[in-house]
Design a protein around this nucleic acid. Structure first.
Lengths: 233, 233
DNA sequence: GCGGTACTGTGTCCAGCGGAAACCGTATCG
DNA sequence: CGATACGGTTTCCGCTGGACACAGTACCGC
C-alpha cells in the first residue's frame, strides 16, 4: 500500500517522461481522465469502470493499465482533472474571501456531483487539489488564525460543503429522515410520542439548500471570535 | 427504487411477522445483522459480502436472500444494529448536552469505524438511528433554535463527527495532504513558493483528533448566538 | 541497413461480486 | 393425508478489477 500511494503521488506530481522507444501511445493521462470525468458526470461514480472508460476511448480495458496502475490511480487523476484550476479570491476581508471560496467549491462540486463522495478519506492529493486547499488556508493565516487551526477550519468547511451537497443531490427533496419514500414520515407520525422533535423540525420544511447557508454563516461566526485580526468585513 | 426503499422501511419499521407454515428459520434478522457487524468491525465495510456473512453464519449466501432482499437491506439492518440505543443526556444546559451527545456519537462511531462511511447520503433510517437524531433536535428545540435550523445544526454536527473520524482512522497520523506517504510533503516543499500556507499550517503539527474539539467548540459558539434561550452553560 | 530491444495494445483467463431461477426437503393447515 | 407454504441449496449469469502471455511497432547501437 505504501508503494501504491507512492505510485499515485509520482503520477500526480512527477514530471511526465517520454520514453521514445516503442510505438507512440495512442492515449494520454489527460485523455483518460477527461473520458472518466465525462462518464462520472453522466452516469455517476459507480458507473465508472475500466471497461466503460476503455470503450469510451476506443481501446481495450487492459490498455488503460499501461497508463494507470489500477483503479485507484484512475480515480486520482480523474479527481485532479475535475477539480480544475483553483480560484483567485477577490473579496475584501477574510470573511468574504472564505465565503467566496466556499461558494466556488460548492459550484464546482455541483458541476461534478460525484466529487463529494470521491474525495472522502485520506487520499494522495494532486497539485491542483492542494492548491484549492492552499487558498483558504492562506486567507486564514493572514487573518491571524493559529497554524494548525487553519487546516482544521478548512477541512470543516469542506465537510460542510460535502455534507449539504450529498444530501441535496441524492434526493430531490431537502432531507427528511430518509425521503425517497415519504412513507417513513408516516411511520414516524404513527408512533406518536416518540420522534416528536424530528417531526416538528421537518414539518415546517427545511430550506432547499439543506442548511448550506445556515451552516456556512455559523462556521464563519465561529471563526470570527478566533481570528485575531478583527472583524473580516 | 421506490419499492426498494419501501421494502427497507418495512423491514426496519414493520412488526416482524411469524409465518408458521414451513420449516423453522435457522437465522434471524438480528443474527444476520450481528454477524455483519462483526465482519465490518474486524475487516472493514469493503469486506462485507453476502458470501462472507453467509459463511460466518454457516449457510449459503443465497439463504440470506430469504431474510433480506439485497445488500442494501443487509446494510440497513446492520447499521441499525450497530448504532445501538440512543443515549440519555444528563448535561445541565443545551450546550453541554449537545457536547455530550456529540461525544457519545463519536465514541460509538469509533467502536464501529465503518459507520461514518456507511451512513452517508440519503438512506432509509431505522428507529434507533432516528432516535439518535431525535436527541439533539429536542435539545435545540427546547433551547429555542428555529425549527428547520434544528435539523441543519444536527446534520452539521454529524458531518463534523464523520469528517474528523474518517481522517483519524484512515491514517495513523493527523491529516496532512495525503499522508501514508510522507513523500508528498517533500513534493510540496520541493515546489518552494507554492503551497507555502499549507506547509506552514501542517508543519507545526495538527492535533491528534484532527480538529474534533476545535470544530465542535466552533459550531457550538456559532449556535450560541442563534439560540434565543440565552447561554447554555 | 539491420538486429535487438523497449514499448503499446490485445486476447485470454481468473476470483470475487450481487443476484435470478429452479429444485428439494420440511413443517403446518384444511 | 394430501396440499401448500416456506427454508436452504444448487446452478447459472453478467459484471467487476486485475494477472499474464503474446503480437505488432518504432527506435537505438552497430
Amino acid at each position: 500500500m505504501d508503494d501504491d500511494v507512492g505510485q499515485v503521488i509520482e503520477l500526480l506530481w512527477g514530471t511526465p517522461s517520454r520514453p521514445s522507444r516503442g510505438p507512440r501511445p495512442s492515449l494520454s493521462i489527460a485523455a483518460i481522465a477527461d473520458a472518466t470525468v465525462r462518464i462520472a458526470d453522466a452516469d455517476g461514480l459507480e458507473s465508472v469502470s475500466m471497461q466503460r472508460v476503455a470503450e469510451a476511448l476506443g481501446v481495450t480495458k487492459m490498455a488503460l493499465y499501461r497508463y494507470v496502475a489500477g483503479k485507484a490511480q484512475l480515480l486520482a487523476v480523474t479527481i485532479e482533472a475535475a477539480v480544475g484550476e483553483p480560484p483567485v479570491l477577490t473579496g475584501a476581508g477574510w470573511r468574504s474571501r472564505i465565503e467566496e471560496w466556499a461558494g466556488l467549491l460548492r459550484e464546482n462540486w455541483l458541476r461534478h456531483p460525484w466529487l463529494p463522495q470521491a474525495t472522502v478519506g485520506d487520499r494522495a492529493m494532486g497539485p491542483r487539489e492542494v492548491a484549492w486547499i492552499e487558498c483558504p488556508v492562506a486567507v486564514l493565516a493572514e487573518a491571524g488564525l493559529a497554524g494548525p487551526q487553519q487546516m482544521d477550519a478548512v477541512l470543516l468547511l469542506c465537510a460542510h460543503v460535502r455534507n449539504t451537497l450529498t444530501a441535496t443531490m441524492s434526493g430531490t427533496q431537502p432531507w427528511t429522515p430518509g425521503n425517497g419514500a415519504g412513507s417513513l414520515h408516516e411511520r414516524l407520525a404513527q408512533r406518536n410520542g416518540d420522534y416528536a422533535a424530528v417531526l416538528g423540525a421537518t414539518r415546517s420544511g427545511r430550506s432547499a439548500d439543506n442548511g448550506w447557508r445556515f451552516g456556512l454563516e455559523l462556521i464563519l461566526d465561529g471563526l470570527e471570535v478566533r481570528v485575531s485580526g478583527g472583524p473580516g468585513r
